[in-house]
Computed example of a mutant assay.
Amino acid sequence: MLIFRDFIKDVARIYDQIIARVFYVKRNSGTYISTSARLDIGPKVGSKVKRNIFPFLFGKGSRIESGAVVNSWVGPVELGENCRLGINAVIIGPVEVGDNTGISLNSFVCGENRIHSGTEEGLLTTDYKTKKVTIGRGCWIGAGVVVVPGVTIGDSVIVAAGSVVTKDIPSNTIYAGNPAKFISNNNGAK
């Protein structure tokens, strides 16, 4: 019985992914989405959270690698042209990423906070609070970077691997650390 239940759950997940790719993704030519990438289209009908018509907007030449998760439960996710979302990276909307930006493997970019309340039964999610994350053009977000809700990262920014971005980052700079701190100007920026 347990195997049958798991089989039914797997079929439902595959169905959700097909529906997401056909009806909820607006993408231009040359866009690649790995078959093992997960596109979460949002809560079920009847939920308090409003769905967008096109929760995923992927620009021309954008690439979403295997194991990546893109979630639009509480806000749209927009990738500009020639963006790269690395292996096992996670983006939870609302997030907007500029053209020619790479988000490396195992990174986490989130525009949502869940508001929890503790009860005798445990921790309950009671509401969502969203603040849009904006990442500029020509940026490189290194492996394992965490970007919290409400952050704006300017154009031509490099964020070093393992950094935690908690505040806005101006254009043409390099940041690293936890929390991410200014390292130098990005002199290679055009």
Rank of each mutant, 00 (worst) to 15 (best):
V147P: 01
E78W: 01
N185L: 15
G144M: 13
I33H: 00
P170M: 13
A160Y: 04
N186M: 08
N185Q: 14
S117C: 02
P43T: 10
K132L: 02
I174F: 04
V69W: 12
Q17V: 08
V148P: 03
G111I: 01
G42V: 10
N52K: 15
P76Y: 07
T101M: 07
L123E: 00
L123F: 02
T125V: 02
D10E: 06
F182S: 14
A37H: 02
T31K: 04
D168K: 13
V148Y: 06
L124K: 06
K167D: 07
A20F: 05
K50R: 15
K48G: 07
S107H: 03
G93S: 09
I8L: 13
A68G: 12
N172G: 04
K167L: 06
D99H: 09
Q17W: 02
G138I: 05
D155T: 10
T35Y: 08
V25G: 07
N71S: 12
I18L: 08
V49D: 01
I169E: 03
F58G: 02
R38Q: 10
S117F: 02
S163M: 08
Y175K: 09
T125F: 00
P55T: 13
G122A: 03
S156W: 09
V45R: 15
K50M: 15
R38F: 09
V25P: 06
D155Q: 06
V69T: 14
G59H: 10
V74Q: 06
N187Q: 11
L2P: 01
I91N: 07
I91L: 13
T166M: 09
K167H: 09
S34P: 01
F182V: 13
P55N: 14
Y175G: 06
N113Y: 08
D168W: 10
K60A: 08
V146I: 12
T130Y: 03
K9C: 00
N88M: 11
L105S: 14
T101F: 03
I183V: 15
V97W: 04
V74Y: 05
S36T: 01
V11T: 12
I174W: 02
G111H: 04
K190P: 07
H116E: 00
